[in-house]
């Protein structure tokens, strides 16, 4: 599926002060808390509270006269409902802090083509070598979704895991699927079975905590399969951590250098998900928030 056969509009990126200036950070956080209709509030299985739920994903209503949550989420509401079937099987949780603005983490996770340079031994070989042809991206307002076809060896590996570990699949898809809900939630799933829920938590203009929860649903209580899954979880959790640890230095390098940038930057066709986020933020921020 190649859906990049037409040039997207060139989108402006937010000016650097939104990444470095503490007062800009305060302004932005206020805008996100008072002008955004809905915001992710946690997972139901963890005892979180919210004003509305989409499956196991809870959301807080932030303004009056908001659209229904399903309208705000658009077609991704169905996706979150489907992913929620895995949320009864938490197997690991982790977090780490980045010395970087939260938007840089979001840019990084929405960047569909740093796999070969930043994740050459992890994500990159897991997806089809002809990934540009097999990458499909959709946008729904400020939210977006990308789907990569897994490489044949990776898909075969997952098939074996499903068999030996009696894993339950919520969808029959040989995909690495990445679903982003503006501004701070993204959910990755693999082979229609493992789900990793990520939350980007801004701590300061130059500091962010990334939290993630891993879910691996099982289809049976078979003791041998359960034992296999326990070993598998350790490996998968370490792998997830490695990917984040590969991303962190690059995010921090952007934080260090962005204040010194003199040009507007540029987004490639496969970076348009980033442009959607900047456009959505620009609409929320005071009118001087757009670059340049």
């Amino acid at each position: 599926m190649l859906n990049y056969d037409n040039p997207p509009p060139r989108r402006r990126l937010l000016a650097s002060r939104w990444f470095h200036d503490p007062s800009a950070f305060a302004t932005e956080q206020t805008a996100l808390s008072t002008r955004l209709p809905w915001r992710f509030a946690g997972l139901a299985h963890e005892g979180g509270t919210g004003d509305a739920a989409c499956g196991g994903f809870l959301f807080r209503r932030q303004t009056h006269d908001v659209p229904p949550l399903t309208d705000w989420l658009g077609p991704l509401a169905d996706r979150l409902s489907l992913l929620s079937t895995a949320l009864d099987s938490p197997v690991a949780s982790d977090s780490t802090e980045f010395a970087a603005n939260w938007k840089i983490l979001v840019e990084n996770t929405l960047d569909d083509f740093h796999g070969s340079t930043v994740h050459p031994q992890t994500i990159h070989p897991a997806v089809d070598a002809d990934w540009r042809r097999h990458l499909h991206t959709d946008r729904f307002g400020p939210h977006s979704r990308s789907q990569w076809k897994l490489s044949d060896p990776t898909a075969a590996w997952w098939d074996k895991l499903v068999t030996r570990g009696h894993l339950r699949r919520f969808a029959t898809q040989d995909l690495y699927d990445h679903c982003f809900i503006f501004p701070d939630l993204y959910v990755a799933s693999f082979h229609g079975t493992m789900v990793i829920v990520h939350r980007v938590v801004p701590l300061a203009v130059d500091r962010t905590r990334l939290e993630w929860r891993t879910f691996l649903p099982a289809a049976s209580d078979d003791a041998k399969a359960a034992s296999f899954r326990r070993g598998l979880v350790s490996m998968l959790a370490a792998s997830a951590r490695q990917v984040i640890d590969e991303d962190r230095p690059l995010c921090e390098q952007v934080q260090q250098a962005r204040i010194a940038a003199t040009g507007p930057g540029i987004l490639g066709w496969r970076e348009q998900r980033i442009g959607y986020v900047h456009a959505a933020l620009s609409a929320l921020l005071p009118t001087d928030g757009t670059a340049p």
Partner: peptide, 8 residues
Amino acid sequence: VCSHRFAL
């Protein structure tokens, strides 16, 4: 500073 997405 990279001109693309501003990485050091």
